[in-house]
Computed example of a mutant assay.
Amino acid sequence: MKIKMEDIAKLANVSKSAVSLALSGKPGISEETRSKILQIVKENGYLPRAMVRADKKNSVSNTLRFVACTNSGIVLEQFYKQPFFMELIHDIEEQCRARGYSLFFSSVPTEQLEDAIQTMESENESSGMILLGTNLTQGQIEFIARKQPNLVVLDTCFETLNVNFIVMNNVMGAYQAAKHLLELGHRRIGYVESNSRMYNFDSRRRGFLQALEEWNVTLDEAHHFSVSPTVVSSQDDFKQRLLELKGQLPTALFCECDYIAISVIKSCIELGIRIPEELSVIGFDNIHEATIITPELTTVHVEKGTIAELAVSKLLDIVEQEDKVKIKSFIDTHLVIRNSCKAVDLSVRV
């Protein structure tokens, strides 16, 4: 007799929605419940129609895995609620669905990475993996590639690794942002960086400094700030730094991501600093919240949909066509001009 999802739910004494969450790898149930459901699925040989299709060559399930490794710096435990990652995951899910594949969603603490990857691939084999590499080291990515060679890594890049990487053009985006401020007449441009470092942020700093160098402008160390990249409320340390500058504020600030930019705007408002009349602010990522903050945020747009499409297409080329060629793809950005930046009045600029 063919077993159905309803049967799995009854055997596990849970709802059908809980079974669905367990099979998709999405949050919303305890790990104990998930393990119980997956064990019942394994014992009864249940293969959901939406998730499984026999591979023409070797009968591998028609499921791709999305893996994120969480820590306390950039990729938080509930990272799927962070706007940038939430939008990216949604786009990847849509691309998988359009191609007849389902996405098995997994997140593991970084310190448990090796054991978790070993377990998930042995217990629930996938056709291939899309890895969120935001906060991972070269060694960690090498380990994962050995366990799952059908791999595409997003949001970072190690040029010397024989692995597929797809990432936004961080250098270009920050260069575009700095150039925009320079063209508006700003010369005292500050830089607000994340206090947790990663490939993307380091690349953005290079692009920013490249633009300043071309215009013979230097970054004043007094205008170089470090804040949390995952806080959207005001930050006390940053406010204190602004107060210490007294009358020597920069006229503009480039922020390494939109979360930082939103936090900066809120901090300035609490100090009575008008945006953009007294201080222009520009971000990076173009998350949805960039249009909710007042004033609406000028920012660098990341083509998350294009990144998702290329990632899924490349992974399926590997899975279905046995494509052996590794790629490093940089997706160009463009500036979205809104209301948080203003031209400098040259008659009063110092």
Rank of each mutant, 00 (worst) to 15 (best):
K36V: 08
R349V: 08
V350Y: 11
C96D: 05
Y191K: 07
L161S: 01
C69G: 02
A98V: 03
V163N: 00
V19T: 06
L253W: 10
S61V: 15
V232S: 13
N216E: 10
D7Y: 03
S20L: 06
P27C: 02
Y199Q: 00
K4I: 11
N62L: 05
E296R: 08
E256Q: 15
I166W: 00
E213Q: 09
R349D: 04
S35C: 08
I189Y: 07
C257G: 05
T299A: 13
V281G: 13
Q210I: 06
R338H: 15
V108W: 05
M172G: 12
I269C: 08
Q148H: 09
V348W: 02
I74M: 09
V350L: 11
T294I: 12
V192I: 09
E93H: 11
E31I: 06
I262S: 08
K239H: 08
R146G: 05
N71W: 01
R197V: 14
E43A: 10
R197L: 14
L219A: 09
V171R: 10
W215L: 02
C255P: 13
I8A: 14
I92V: 12
K342P: 02
N150H: 12
S340K: 05
R99G: 08
D258K: 04
V319A: 02
I307A: 12
E142C: 06
A116I: 03
E32Y: 05
V300F: 14
A308E: 03
R97G: 03
E256K: 07
L271S: 10
R187M: 01
T230N: 07
N58T: 13
